[in-house]
Amino acid sequence: MPEVSPDQYLALFRDMWRVRKFEQALEREFKRGKVPGMLHVGLGQEATLAAIAHSLRKEDGIFPDHRCHGLLFLKGTPGKKIMAELFGRATGICSGKGGSLHSADASVNNFGDNGVQGSYMVTALGVALGWKMQGKNNVSAVVVGDGTSGRGEWHESMNLASVWKAPVFFICVNNGYAISTPVGFSHATEDLVDFAKSYKIPAVQVDGNDVLASFQATQEAVAHIRAGKGPYFVEYKTWRWQGMFSGEFRPAEEVKYYKEDHEPIALAKADLLKKGIASPEQLDAIEKEAEAEIEEWVSYAQNSPLPDPAKATANVYIGWEVESWQS
């Protein structure tokens, strides 16, 4: 296991708070009707997200899923441009044309989410293949939820990544449920890592609420892929706070376990204190700073203009324009 320095640990802790505050602010604004469309948030999955972000380089590719708003800014895109995109504003990273489910930033090789869950599993394979053919050693990282792993594309991409030794990092976020369906109910195994093993891909399972364990597993995965040894698979066992759309359908003791006893930020905080890496005051200050930063992004988004109407018909084709309304 690679050692994690106190500074690195604190940086992970700080980014967990930034993800938490981002998603909480977003959910609040969504409920106020300021964020259009649908919203899924990554609350409860902060450790997994921070661990991934801290293991990838800027030039590595990321295919973030619907609970990865945090990854978008942790990857290096200015957070205010992410927030503005979610608000559907002109200043958003895709000029307001993508929204939560389609936010990409080519400048940091974020290839965007897909509203058709997981379709990009094979796009990630293609990015990896392209880079391999070009002699680059970037990693193409793709986030897939437990429910989404039922798709054929998952199997097609794992098989071919293995055959082609393509640099794909399969990030399996197993939070226990699809919308409402428990993973063990709808898959042949509760341990999705089993599938990857059958495709001869090195694959491990990790407690996705334990930021250090997640970080270390991710570091090993990325090092393996970057060394040209082909794909790697990590299953992060975690849990999401959000039921899906509304209400809570999961057993009360399970909710309590994940929100209190095994909550990722609290776990990290206790560990940081125990190890004497920071004082309670320092850790509280980190939380406050994160909150202030995110609220700035919210006001930036709210005060940003709506998209230029010309954007509606822009960039459909390359080389010619589509017809607009005629008088």
């Binding site: 094979v122 293609g126 990015v127 070009q134 193409s140 594309e153 098989n159």
Partner: peptide, 19 residues
């Protein structure tokens, strides 16, 4: 193999990085 989604997906992904 008979993986049509992966054929097109791999094409799109590699095209997105310049192939």
């Amino acid at each position: 193999p008979l993986s049509e989604a992966a054929i097109i997906g791999a094409a799109v992904g590699s095209a997105m990085v310049g192939m």
